[in-house]
Design a protein around this nucleic acid. Structure first.
Lengths: 151, 151
DNA sequence: GGTGAAATCTACCTAGG
DNA sequence: CCTAGGTAGATTTCACC
C-alpha cells in the first residue's frame, strides 16, 4: 500500500511542499515522473490532504502564543454547542482539541499582546455558560515545530 | 508595509498553499501577475517561511495523538540539554513548547497505538533524569485545526 | 522511465495615479 | 515615483507512450 519510498516522500513534502517533482526525485533516487506520480497518488488516496503556507506569527504582529485549557461545567449538548461555536468563530483560536483527563478542551491561541489574550479569556471564554474553569499557559519558546509525522 | 490585501492573501495560502497566482488573483480582485508578485514579496520578506503538506495521521497508521505535559525536576543546563536532545530526536514528538506555569514543557506526540504512547512515556520520557512528572492527555476529537492566523 | 503538450511562474515592459 | 496589468520565455506538471 504505502512503501518506504512513500514514507520518505511524505517526510520531504511535510517539510517543504514546494519541492518540484524533479527535486523530490533526486532525494528519493527516482525519476521526476515517478516522484510526481507517487505524490499525485498520495494526494488522490487522501493520505495527503493539502498544503499550507507557514506564516511567521511575529512577522504579522502576533507576539503572544498560548495554550488554554478549558474545563466544562456541564456537558449538556446545547451548552456545549454554544461553546464550540465560539471556538470555531474566534480567529485567535487556531486549533482546538477535546482531550481525556481533567481538561476537557485544549485551545491554541495567538494574540497581538498579553492584554488581548487576557481579554479573550475574560471577555470571551470565561463568560460562556458551559465553561467552569480556564487555565492559560503562554508559550515562551518553541523547541520543535511541526516535525514530519513519525511514519 | 502589509496591507489588507496581503492579509487576505496570507489567509488564503494558509488554507491552501497550492492556489495558483490566477486563483489568488480572482479571490483578491487582482491580476495574476500582481497576486504572484505579492506572494513572492511576502516570501522574500520572511513573513511566509515555507509550505508544508498536510498528511492524514490515520492514513499513515497513527491512531493516537496526545499532548504530554512535562515538569522538570531541575533546570541544570546540562540535564535540560539531555532532555531537549531526546525531544528533538524522537520522531513521535512532532512539536514541543516551553510554557509558563506548572508544566515546563508541552509535547505533541503521534503514536501508532496506546501501547506505543505508553512505551514512549515510560521508557523514553520518564527515565530522563531531568524529568520530574509527566501527564499525558489523549486527543479524542479535533474541533478546529490550524486555522489561518488572526491577522 | 521518458516525452511532449498544457499549465504555471516570473522577469520585463507599459500604463495609470 | 510607485503600484497595477499584460506578455513572453523558462519551468513544471501530467497524460500518454
Amino acid at each position: 500500500m504505502i512503501d518506504d519510498t512513500d514514507r520518505r516522500l511524505l517526510s520531504a513534502i511535510q517539510t517543504d511542499a514546494q519541492l518540484t517533482a524533479q527535486e523530490l526525485g533526486e532525494r528519493l533516487n527516482l525519476s521526476a515522473s515517478q516522484a510526481g506520480r507517487r505524490r499525485q497518488r498520495l494526494e488522490q488516496s487522501g493520505i495527503v490532504t493539502g498544503a499550507r503556507a507557514v506564516v511567521s506569527p511575529e512577522g504579522t504582529g502576533l507576539q503572544v502564543q498560548a495554550f488554554v485549557q478549558v474545563q466544562m461545567a456541564t456537558h449538556e449538548p446545547e451548552k456545549v454547542r454554544a461553546f464550540t461555536r465560539i471556538v470555531k468563530t474566534r480567529p485567535q483560536i487556531v486549533s482546538a482539541w477535546t482531550l481525556t483527563g481533567e481538561a476537557d478542551y485544549l485551545l491554541r491561541v495567538y494574540c497581538t499582546d498579553l492584554a488581548a489574550l487576557h481579554q479573550l479569556i475574560h471577555e470571551v471564554i470565561l463568560p460562556i455558560p458551559a465553561v467552569a474553569r480556564v487555565q492559560s499557559q503562554i508559550v515562551m519558546d518553541q523547541l520543535k515545530q511541526d516535525a514530519p509525522l513519525p511514519i
